[in-house]
Every structure is written in structure tokens, then in C-alpha cells.
């Protein structure tokens, strides 16, 4: 059986909030290393890969592989009943038809308990190869969100160009064009403001801004975001959490015909 206790419900609330507009029905695949999810959006352009490591829970117990088939809209309705600081416990049997969730207020004067019906989801899994990306950019997640939102007001697509002079986000729209260029920032006082660019070769790829703006809903999970880019492969946008857990988004590029 699965028993997983989170010190603060907000971790799961934020994760589900960040992905629920991209994917609807998906399996939480549980084993002794944690809770994983992989799901594509309906158009098969974007993929969500979540890993909540056992280390992010206290305690975490899951002695065999358990698939928890969830509708994220339904899960959101239940999670809305949890306060951010509540202690959240997930419980499920080995072949579950429901997921048990309890929310305990931190001063223990209130315990809420919900059982959520599960679904049988036959999910297609894609193999994601280990990739040495040509460019890896680490930046404040709020900055990335601002760039995507600003450019989306002008255009459907953004071209991300990483070179030795920095990283440039450029768009062309009906009303004109725009670009934002970022250079390396080293803020010793506050490392969260750093912009780091690791480059092995210059890259330039075009992506749909609609999806990137959607990924930015994960902004609350982490103060920094990492973009991994190589020519001719999907972009990886990664939000790292405590305990080695992460939320990753992959986005297929737009390719010239």
C-alpha cells in the first residue's frame, strides 16, 4: 500500500495547479522511490514529467508499484479543501479504486478526510533519452514568466537563441517585433537572481508561446527555472523542488518546412 505524508499540502496543491490545464487524466505511478507522473497534452506537443521523491515526504511508504489513475480536475476540487500549511497524507491500497486524502491543520484542531474515486487510465509512455543539451540557462522563474507573457502579447511564437553574447528571446507579430536579451548575472548576495548560461554550441529554436506561458504556472514551485536547449530536439523547462523532486516540461519545437 501507499502511505505518503507531506509536511505542507501546498507542494501538491502547487504541482497540480501547474499541470492541470495541460493534462487532465493521468496516473500517479508510485513505487519505493516516490510518486511519478508522465503525461502529454492532447495535441502531443507538450509533455509533463513530475517526480515527487520519497525524500520530499515524511514518512513515505510504498512497497510495490501502484498506479493511481486521477482526473486532475477532481483532484483539484479536493485539494482546494486543504490549507497550504496543512499536513497532507495520501493513502491507497495495492490495487486501489480510491485515493484517501487527509488534511490536518498544523495545530491539529481539524482533520479533513476525503476519498477520491480513481480511474483506469491506459497511458502511453514516451522514452525520453538522456541528452547533453547545447545550452542550459538558469534564471529566476519570475523573469522567465515575464518574458513569455510580454512576448505572447505580440506573437504566437518565440525564437530562443543562445550564443556567446547571451540568450535572446525574439518574436515577430502582426503589430511588429520584439526581443529580450539576457546576459549572465552573478548576484553573490542573492543567488536566486543569478542568470547562468552554459553553452557548448550556439542554438536557435522556435516555440509556441501558448505552451511556455502554461509551463510558467509552475513558477510558485521554485524561484529559479532551467531551460535546456539543443537544436532539433524538444525544449526542457525544469523547476526543481526540495528533496530532489522536480517538475519538467518538454515542448516540441516549431520547424521550418
Amino acid at each position: 500500500m501507499l502511505e505518503a505524508r507531506l509536511e505542507q499540502a501546498q507542494l501538491l496543491k502547487k504541482v497540480v495547479d501547474a499541470i492541470k490545464d495541460l493534462v487532465q487524466d493521468c496516473n500517479f505511478d508510485c513505487n519505493d522511490s516516490g510518486i511519478a507522473l508522465q503525461a502529454m497534452d492532447n495535441s502531443h506537443v507538450a509533455l509533463v514529467s513530475m517526480m515527487l521523491k520519497a525524500e520530499s515526504f515524511n514518512p513515505f511508504r510504498c512497497d510495490r508499484n501502484i498506479a493511481i489513475g486521477l482526473n486532475l480536475v477532481s483532484l483539484t476540487k479536493v485539494l482546494r479543501a486543504a490549507q497550504n500549511e496543512d499536513i497532507l497524507t495520501l493513502k491507497a491500497e495495492d490495487a486501489p479504486d480510491s485515493l484517501n486524502l487527509t488534511f490536518e491543520s498544523s495545530d491539529k484542531d481539524r482533520i479533513s478526510e476525503y476519498d477520491l474515486k480513481l480511474m483506469d487510465i491506459d497511458q502511453e509512455h514516451l522514452g525520453i533519452p538522456d541528452t547533453d543539451y547545447s545550452a542550459t540557462i538558469s534564471m529566476p522563474s519570475a523573469e522567465f514568466k515575464r518574458i513569455c507573457t510580454d512576448l505572447m502579447a505580440m506573437s504566437e511564437s518565440v525564437t530562443i537563441e543562445a550564443g556567446k553574447d547571451g540568450i535572446k528571446f525574439a518574436c515577430n507579430g502582426d503589430i511588429g517585433n520584439g526581443s529580450i536579451t539576457l546576459r549572465t548575472v552573478q548576484d553573490v548576495e542573492n543567488k536566486e537572481n543569478n542568470i547562468e548560461i552554459a553553452l557548448t554550441e550556439p542554438v536557435s529554436l522556435t516555440f509556441s508561446l501558448k505552451y511556455l506561458v502554461n509551463f510558467c504556472k509552475a513558477q510558485n514551485l521554485s524561484k529559479t527555472v532551467k531551460l535546456h536547449i539543443s537544436n532539433e530536439v524538444p525544449l526542457l523547462v525544469e523547476y526543481a523542488m526540495e528533496g530532489g523532486s522536480y517538475l519538467r516540461f518538454y515542448l516540441a519545437p516549431k520547424i521550418g518546412d
Binding site: 506537443v45 502511453e124 514516451l126 522514452g127 524538444p234 516540441a252 520547424i255
Partner: peptide
Amino acid sequence: SNQQARLEGFFKPV
């Protein structure tokens, strides 16, 4: 203009 690629063009089903 650019065409939106799908993920299956890069990642194979397992």
C-alpha cells in the same frame, strides 16, 4: 512558416 512538431517525432513510445 514554421510547423509545430509533435513529441513522437523525437521520443519513442515505450
